[in-house]
Amino acid sequence: MIRSFDYDAAQRRLDVEFVSGRRYFYLDVPEREVEAMRRATSKGGFFNRRIRDRYRFERG
C-alpha cells in the first residue's frame, strides 16, 4: 500500500507515496505520530487507523 514516506518536522507535513504512484501530503501531523508509524510493523495498517481521515491533505 505505502511505497515510502517522509516527514518535514518544520512544516509538520507527512509526505506519503503509495504503490500506485500517487503522492499525498498530510498537514499538521505531530512528530510523535510519524515516529509511531516508523515503528509500526504494518505501515499501511497504521496509516489507515491513525492518519487517513484524521488529517487534512493535499494531493501531490
Rank of each mutant, 00 (worst) to 15 (best):
A10N: 05
R38K: 14
R50E: 08
E17R: 15
R12Y: 02
E31D: 15
G21A: 02
S20E: 10
D53K: 15
V16Q: 01
E17T: 14
G60R: 13
R54Q: 02
K43V: 12
R49W: 00
A36R: 15
V34R: 00
R49C: 03
R56I: 00
R50L: 07
E35H: 08
D8E: 07
R12N: 11
R13C: 09
R23D: 05
K43A: 11
F46G: 04
T41S: 11
I2E: 11
E31G: 07
P30W: 00
I2R: 02
D15H: 13
F25Q: 13
R56D: 03
D28H: 03
Y7A: 02
A36H: 13
G44P: 13
D28S: 08
M1R: 04
F57V: 03
R38C: 13
R23W: 07
V34T: 01
E33D: 01
R3C: 01
R56F: 00
E35V: 15
R38W: 03
L27A: 05
R54C: 05
L14W: 00
G60W: 11
E58S: 09
R12S: 12
N48F: 06
R50I: 04
D28L: 01
F46A: 01
M1V: 09
R39S: 10
V29D: 04
V19G: 10
M37V: 07
K43F: 12
T41P: 12
Y7D: 08
S42K: 02
G44L: 02
